[in-house]
Design a protein around this nucleic acid. Sequence first.
DNA 1: AGATATTTGTTCGTATGTATT
DNA 2: TAATACATACGAACAAATATC
Lengths: 263, 263
Amino acid sequence: MKPPASIRLKPDQPETGKSPGLRNRPRKVAESIKDWITDQNLVPGDRLPQEQELIKTFAVSKGTAREALKVLETQGLIQTRTGPGGGAFITEMPASRARALLANHFFFKNLTISDIYELRQALEPEMAANLAIQLGDQEIATLEKTMVVYDHPPKTIEEEQQQRIAELEFHERLAEFSTNPLQGFICGFLISLLKDLAVCRRIYTRPNPELRERGLSYQAQLIEAFREKDANAAQSIMRAHMASAKRLMEVQEAIVNRGFLPG
Amino acid sequence: MKPPASIRLKPDQPETGKSPGLRNRPRKVAESIKDWITDQNLVPGDRLPQEQELIKTFAVSKGTAREALKVLETQGLIQTRTGPGGGAFITEMPASRARALLANHFFFKNLTISDIYELRQALEPEMAANLAIQLGDQEIATLEKTMVVYDHPPKTIEEEQQQRIAELEFHERLAEFSTNPLQGFICGFLISLLKDLAVCRRIYTRPNPELRERGLSYQAQLIEAFREKDANAAQSIMRAHMASAKRLMEVQEAIVNRGFLPG
DNA sequence: AGATATTTGTTCGTATGTATT
DNA sequence: TAATACATACGAACAAATATC
């Protein structure tokens, strides 16, 4: 259990230079602890020194040390446990937290449906091709289990919305299966945006039978291509799927944005 | 100055449920403040209530309130200023911080050159096509200014390395020019990985004339396509550029990983 | 330019909650 | 169950930064 980190932990802000001495100490302490982590080649599961020891080592007060640890915890680098043998433990940042942090960056950016689908269109076909030669029966079964949620017309508006989420989760599963961590994370992030974006939430509350039927058809074809391990087929099916979904969603976005909607 | 956020600020961890009462209060306070921000439709530049007021409002101690603010600061949501009229101000998270936070997630994931270039190959050609019909003379001039750093063979190892970085910065500029915030950010993030990844740093210290010459040629063609606003040409040039760079870098990665290297 | 008021930043002592043994 | 070790929380006092007069 040694393989050290492949990326250097970099400071969050490139050292503004104009903090004369004592300002923002917790942040600096946090950076020092990061350096210490890399120096010691610590891996997830390892424990940091205890609070008192950190206080002595870095010559700061308890409050400052705690704030520094809070920084690292927020960054997803450590988790703390109470009790004997407790303390701060190196941890791998779960994708969910990484997504949440990243979403903050786009909070005021006013993303559009088109922005998101442009990337899905660029990424998911390739991902589908990769998955075709890789997925086993069990994974394919998981995908099919997700599909049963929307393999029939919705009876209520609530079911309509649940089906939309389930359709997205089909693609979320695909992302989880990706062996390229970057590809998997980014595709998953795009899905999470589609789940959270205010525009999307509004769109999902409106009936849209075409989106469901087409999606279902494409996904069924996709499963078939996965079964036959046909990468080319999977790629072109996904390409068509994304192009179709993009078009339909953009129409909905335009309608919703023009306020042709109750509420 | 009203347009409210388009994405809901979501809690970082999906509420484990097993924290009975007093545990992890700062995090909960931070979440409450987030809710308050969304409720009030605050935009970057707006000020949060002062420390003392937060302490009263949320009925916590100063230390806890400060830790909560630290969380929000780490998430890039606020910045604080001292002095009269000071306090915590809503702020837009700079891309640099978002990149740093995201990089933490991949810290223990052992990304490979191939992982990164698979995505560049999928994203940058499309981006180039978009930019072709959008870039003005001034932006193109900026790109050309970056290129002069590596338009000649390097004389020293240090220059070699500087040239590699400059080549990457050419693409970083492209990402900055993108009008799709997602596309721009992700392409920029991939570049930043290539700058920081330990494998890459090692690769860049070795002479590699082919990489430079080919890159230079492709980028010159790209500039030409931008000038003529030829989206198709830009796209296919970038596709070829990425394919070529991917191949060359993978070869280098294999060599470096086998330890055929001094040091 | 300098004094002052305001607000965040830091420290310390103490008390409490919580998990392990 | 009790003891213990540790994180967590509180409040008061002090230090530093900065805007305003």
